[in-house]
Amino acid sequence: MATEPNVGEAPLHSLVEVQEDTRQRICGGRVLLRIRLAPDEVASLSEPDPLFSLVPRTAYLPFLFHDVLEHFKKSAIARMGQPYELWFDFNHTALKWHFPVGVLCDALVGVEVPVPLDLTVHFRGNSVMSDLLPFSGMADLQRSVMNAFKQAIFLEVGSASRFMRLEKKEHMMLWDAILQSDIKSFSQVEEKLMCSTLAECKSLAVRLHIWAPAHDGEVLLHKAPALRESGAAFTLSDFLAMAMPPLLSAAGDVLAEGVEVLTQGLILELHWLRRISLGT
């Protein structure tokens, strides 16, 4: 792909979509979750049955809040009129609600995702977790997701005016598509917002989620050019050399020992070009 002479001028979808449903196949993965209520929050005599849920990798954890609440409400310690403050942890790491499930999975679990993946849900204490953003309802999620999307558009196009010019029904279609993990509808609105070729892109928005044992996750927001000066596609290797050289070997041609780079549950090769979309 990187060696195509006209990579800058080619319509973006032609770079990614080998077959019509390629994007669906790349982004449409699901994760089977087995959710248990935190043991110190169980009020019933026996531990409640876990809740199984097959969630799209593009979904966000608050999408599960309703089902989780219905399933565990009877067993959880009563809140005496206080609102529930739902949050999840994986192996004692609190999970950020404003990143997609697939991103959390790539960063915290890696390529070997157990089936099912065990998460623990807590009904209280969200507000005292310093590494979680406050959450008071789906409007918070919508605001966070849409602003992240606007940021990406701003980097690609140089302004967010395309987003602000969207009609109300297109806004609703976009949010519905995100809620339903409907990649086709999402792409329809996205086409109006993003550049149609790499040559038009001012820069791409990349969020690098960095995970290492015994360390809280770090996230680096960094822009990347879409093309090299020569007109060839900017690769993952180019990006890491620019933004995070310690992830590459001393010679800079392979990943440093112990480093894996994933997206959508797939291990990325250094020469790959990928159109970076919302939240990844």
């Binding site: 960095i210 770090e218 680096l220 310690p246 992830l247 480093v259 780079v261």
Partner: peptide, 18 residues
């Protein structure tokens, strides 16, 4: 997107420099 399995020291030091 990235998973660093060992010695995050240089990565974190680079982040701090950035």
């Amino acid at each position: 997107m990235s998973k660093v399995q060992e010695s995050a020291g240089p990565v974190l030091a680079h982040l701090a420099r950035l």
